[in-house]
């Protein structure tokens, strides 16, 4: 659907966001983006804004929740945290990811 070319495989960003929230707890959008950048180093070419569409999707699914708080620059900003359903989903997705990874890895090995 999206006309923009994605830099990441579909769904990867969701996983990164949820994982970030799981380890770091409640964060605002900017901090989530920064954290993903820091962890991935220069390996990931991601414009920071791209996390916002992902955030609303996750919120609508009920996997994360948002509440209004005050940013370090004294502005109203949304803070996101993982819900119970989100934790479950994250776990399932991590498993799926690992399985797929293992499968692809095995193929790649076999091909070599």
């Amino acid at each position: 659907m999206s006309k923009r070319r994605r830099d990441l495989p579909y769904g990867t960003l969701d996983l990164l966001i949820m994982k970030t929230l799981e380890t770091m707890g409640e964060m605002n959008g900017y901090r989530i983006a920064r954290r993903i950048e820091q962890v991935s180093g220069d390996a990931l070419k991601l414009s920071q804004g791209a996390i916002y569409p992902a955030l609303i999707r996750l919120e609508q699914e009920g996997w994360i929740r948002a509440r209004w708080g005050i940013s370090e620059t004294n502005r109203k900003v949304k803070f996101y945290s993982l819900t119970k359903a989100g934790r479950k989903q994250l776990k399932a997705e991590v498993e799926a990811w690992e399985q797929a990874n293992a499968l692809v890895a095995r193929f790649l090995e076999a091909a070599l």
Binding site: N28, G29, Y30, R31, A33, S71, T73, R75, V77, K78
Partner: peptide, 12 residues
């Protein structure tokens, strides 16, 4: 969303 983006830019 607008508010969030503004806050984001300020922090950045």
């Amino acid at each position: 969303l607008e508010a969030e983006i503004e806050a984001h830019l300020e922090m950045a």
